[in-house]
Each structure stands twice: as C-alpha cells, then as structure tokens.
C-alpha cells in the first residue's frame, strides 16, 4: 500500500496553476465544483474525466462552452463507473502510461442509479478513482431525495408537513458498503477540510486499481444556505459529527478525526432551509443515530 509519507504533498502553495474546470455554469458558491476543481488540480493533465448526468456534467459541457480543460466525457446516468472502466481499459490496451481515469458523480448517481456499475468497477479493480460529491439530494433535477439524503431533509419529493417530517430514512452507509468490496483505498472527506481532501485524492492518484472518495460538498441552492458559507457549512457537518472523516486501507478502517466533543447538531441544522421545519424530537433522532454510528465506529475501528 502506498504510504502517504512518501508522496509529495499537494497544497495551495505548490499545486499546479492550471485550472481544469473553468468557466462552468454551476450555481454561485457550488460545493461540488470546489471538489471537482481541487481533485483535478491534484490529478493533473493526463487525466480522463467521466461524469454521469448530474450537476457537474450539466454545468460543464453546454455546446460550445467546454468547461473541462482536460479530456472529459459525459456518461449515461447509471454508466459512469462502467464507462470509466472502459476508458481505463482502452487506455491500457493502447499502451498509454501515467494516465488516470476519474469519475465525478453525485450522490444519486453513485448510491442509487449508478451503484451496480460502481460495484462492478471495484470488483474488477479497474484503474479508476471514483469521487462521489455528496450534496445529499438530486440537485440537478431540482432537489429530490436520494439514497444519501439524511433524516429530516425537506426535498421536493419528501415535503415536510403535518404528517411526514421530510425524509424519514437515514443516509445509506456508502463508505462501508464500498469498503466491504475490499477496495484498495477508500476515504470520506469534506470540502470543509480541503487539505485532508487533497491528501486523499493524492493518495488515490498514487494507488493502482479502483479507489473511492466520498466527499461532502455543499449546495447552497438545495440546502437553503447563503452562497458564501459553502465551505463553512461543510466544515460544520464534520464538526458536529454528522459527517466523519475516515479511510479504508489494507483492509483496515481509520478514523481521521475523533473529537472528544461534537459541535451542536442543532446549530448546523438550523443554518439550513432544508432542516428549518425540524422539531427538537426530529433533531434528537438525528443525534441518536449519529451517536449509535460513532459508538460502533469507535468500537470497531479504533
């Protein structure tokens, strides 16, 4: 396994000046575009990018405006991982060296419709880095619930009212589902902790075979937050323990942050329009679920 210590660190000071995702039409303050932009700066020029239907493809390629300044292709909604597998196989068969293939897919494109192809890609250990930018709903189509939408979220398909408090299921445990494939490298990250994200992309870049990063990426439009707080809110999510930073490597889980105390969940939720309606009881349900999860992670991973 690649040791992070051996890889030259990429940071704001030394990263390439080149911008590979530029002039796109994402909403102002889009967290997903921070994730895509930073990851591509780590991966560099010799990268093939594949994106399924979703925000990043919709805002990136509107003929004749081509916002990817490297090779990129839009895939079918369920076919991002498999098309990327094909790209990697084609590049290998054509004898191309030092090439990386990366996928940027949203939460719906990853945990729901694209999951079968992703599972196959990891099973075959194809040389692809799959990055899921998770903004916790189908934002491209206008905020509908996905398998990664958390409990209590108000979306256009899980309206909050007298009878139902918005989304009534918890987020799928995507990271552990991926790790259960015995993948070479998987990690969770947040754009609220950008250096941690850069390090993880860098590690995946230097790992041969299938790798996976689940990065929490805010959506001011869908979350009902001011555009300037996109980074802050993604950091808050980690600090209150609803999002955790972890890695899976050599068959072992590792918690990157294990705070003694969490920041208040309620503060994080109440900053966002999508959670405004939640009662104290609803919030307690979110906290209980968080605590159950952390108790298990701490018991099993530490």
């Amino acid at each position: 396994m690649t040791n992070l210590v051996d890889i030259p660190k990429v940071n704001a000071k030394n990263m390439t000046e080149k911008e590979f995702f530029y002039g796109h039409k994402a909403c102002a303050g889009c967290g997903g575009s921070v994730a895509v932009r930073l990851a591509l700066k780590v991966l560099g020029e010799r990268t093939y990018t594949a994106l399924p239907a979703g925000c990043m493809s919709a805002v990136g390629f509107i003929y004749p405006q081509m916002a990817f300044n490297t090779n990129a292709v839009i895939t079918t909604f369920p076919g991002a991982a498999s098309m990327a597998s094909g790209i990697a196989a084609g590049a290998k068969a054509l004898g191309q060296k030092d090439v990386k293939t990366v996928v940027f897919a949203g939460d719906g494109g990853t945990a729901d419709i694209g999951f079968q192809a992703l599972s196959g890609m990891i099973d075959r250990n194809d040389d692809v880095l799959y990055i899921c930018y998770d903004n916790e709903a189908y934002m491209n189509t206008g905020i509908q619930k996905s398998g990664l939408t958390p409990y209590g979220t108000k979306t256009t398909t899980t309206p909050a009212g007298k009878n139902i408090p918005g989304t009534v299921t918890h987020k799928k445990n995507l990271f552990e589902i991926i790790a259960a494939h015995d993948i070479a490298y998987a990690a969770t990250a947040s754009i609220g902790y950008p250096q941690d994200f850069l390090n993880k992309v860098n590690k995946a870049k230097h790992t041969k075979g299938a790798t996976f990063i689940h990065v929490y990426a805010s959506c001011p439009t869908g979350w009902g937050t001011p555009t300037e707080t996109s980074i802050e809110i993604a950091k808050d999510a980690v600090d209150c323990g609803l999002i955790f930073l972890a890695e899976f490597e050599d068959g072992e889980y590792k918690l990157n942050r294990n705070p003694k105390e969490f920041a208040p969940v309620k503060d994080y939720l109440k900053k966002q329009g999508r959670f405004k309606h939640m009662t104290d009881e609803d919030i307690q349900c979110v906290i209980d679920n968080r605590d159950r999860k952390w108790a298990r992670m701490r018991k099993q991973w530490l």
Binding site: G79, G86, A89, S119
Partner: peptide, 16 residues
C-alpha cells in the same frame, strides 16, 4: 456485471 455496463465500457474505450 451487466449489459448496461458492457455497452458503457465499450463506449468509454471507443472514446479514447
């Protein structure tokens, strides 16, 4: 792992 992926993979390879 499926026909959908078969055609997707061939498209990906063709695209390079």
């Amino acid at each position: 792992e499926s026909e959908h992926s078969a055609i997707s993979a061939t498209m990906g390879a063709s695209a390079v």
